[in-house]
Design a binder for these strands. Structure first.
Lengths: 168, 168
DNA sequence: TCGAGATTGTTATGGCCGTAACAATATTCC
DNA sequence: GGAATATTGTTACGGCCATAACAATCTCGA
């Protein structure tokens, strides 16, 4: 009794990879597949169900959320935290600023720099969307017991902390 | 001793969310954050390090890989398996076909349908890239013991199998 | 001091993705 | 048999992302 095409495919692909000679690695395949598939489905679901109906996007919300926690912040710092490029921040901020959720302020002590800050509308939007996103996340992970959720989080964090070096 | 800005931010944000009243949920936040961050970093790393240097993209590779396992397949089936839209398949296939890695064949028994198939060049490309991607995935998950990797995979699979219904 | 080098934010270009609209073709059901 | 409906693949549009190039500005060392 198949739950969905992607789950069926995952099982089939695993057996096929298991038959292949090295360097094929059925365990590595399964792990990466499930991780990427779950993340993709969750992102898509949050985006279409929570954020798009509110005139936001998930990347836009994540930026708003960081500004909410951190207060006025430079784009370069948001780019570092989010592991995205400065141009991606510029793009996302353009969309948010067009919607009146974020404003750019110039910094007296550095003529190159800019500081991003929530507008009152941005503050209200992030609070409202955060509650809804949390509720939806709880639905997604309801199949796991609390101890399992903690364990999953710990395993993910361990991989993140020991990730291989990237080219910078 | 901080390993990277995003890990520091994760810890700080968790404490901030923990201070907030319901529906804020520090556990749900941490889990979703680590899942999405890891997936994003892994995708970016595989893309820039493995696929772009070979003239591929990660979504392009994933399509090639499915065609490799499944043989000639219709776009609509790939879209179902991959949980992406038909137009996204069309787009990715355009890029792959431009590179001579995939070809479209018409189907005699259905005038609307098209079948996608690897070219010999596409077959060679997917084999080579698959080996390299596997090696890189192994580096990413080297911090976990084999039993931990299996457990992580099982937890992810359980969430995937019991995911909430989406709007279709 | 002042020029070489680094940093910041933006733009251009190209790929990915979803939604919506569309034409062509199949299917269903009266 | 034929009309209403469904399905398939494509295109147009707008948003996201990275890389590369750029102008403006800052920093630091000779």
């Amino acid at each position: 009794m198949s739950r969905s095409p992607d789950v069926d495919y995952a099982a089939y692909a695993r057996t096929r990879v298991a038959e292949m000679p090295a360097p094929a690695d059925a365990d590595a395949f399964s792990l990466a597949y499930h991780l990427l598939q779950l993340a993709y489905l969750l992102v898509t679901d949050l985006e279409t169900r929570i954020h798009r109906p509110r005139g936001l996007t998930l990347p836009g919300f994540r930026l708003l959320f960081k500004l909410w926690l951190l207060g006025p912040t430079q784009p370069v710092r948001l780019a570092e935290i989010s592991a995205m490029s400065r141009s991606a921040v510029t793009n996302a901020v353009n969309t948010l600023a067009r919607g009146g959720l974020v404003e750019r302020r110039s910094l007296p002590e550095d003529g190159r720099a800019v500081v991003l800050a929530l507008t009152p509308a941005g503050d209200a939007a992030v609070r409202e969307a955060f509650g809804e996103q949390t509720r939806r996340e709880q639905e997604w992970f309801a199949a796991l017991a609390p101890a399992e959720r903690e364990q999953l989080t710990r395993l993910l964090a361990r991989v993140l902390e020991n990730r291989p070096a990237t080219v910078t």
